[in-house]
Amino acid sequence: MKKENEHNIEEASLNEEKKIWSILKDIPDPEVPVLSILDLGIVRSIKLSQYPPPNDGDWDIEVIITPTYSGCPAMDMIAANIRFALLQNGFKNIKITTVLSPAWTTDWMSEEGKQKLKEYGIAPPNPKQQVCNNELFAPHEVVQCPRCNSYQTHRISEFGSTACKALYQCDKCSEPFDYFKCH
């Protein structure tokens, strides 16, 4: 009997977790609203625990998030949005924990997220091996123009409108664009 209970709790927990992931999937990043916080890889994990029946339904939920940059001003808002979304869906005991380790990297951005960024007009981060070169006056990273797909682009500024972006311009179609820089 006890075993069966444990099994039921485990299954219920998996179902709840699934539900929570699907709620989080719809929370946009405040600075790049075309991406959800899951596309960015900001949510690292969800921890669930349940008081045994008859108190079922009372789940303790912990959502573990990690910032893209130390100074990302969107983190407080993201934490608040996660809390609101879960409250709206009937969850009560919510804890949001920020962890710094392992440090976030653009590798955690989903392929779907990269595609969405490009359609939005922001060049997605290049795969890791090409970049993060600390040499001085190194040639600028080759970035594809999200509008006309040309690789003939140049960097205007290493620092852009937000901490996670650099500013580029396309030499072919002249369009200036943001590049989500490798990190």
């Binding site: 910032p67 940059y69 130390s70 100074g71 990302c72 001003p73 710094l100 205007i156 500024s157 290493e158 620092f159 852009g160 409108s161 901490a163 500013l167």
Partner: peptide, 21 residues
């Protein structure tokens, strides 16, 4: 202006690091 944005971005990083501590 680009360098002004650069220095602001750097400040933001430093403020974030200080907040972590």
């Amino acid at each position: 202006m680009e360098q002004d944005i650069a220095i602001t971005n750097i400040s933001l990083d430093l403020i974030g690091q200080a907040r972590n501590f």
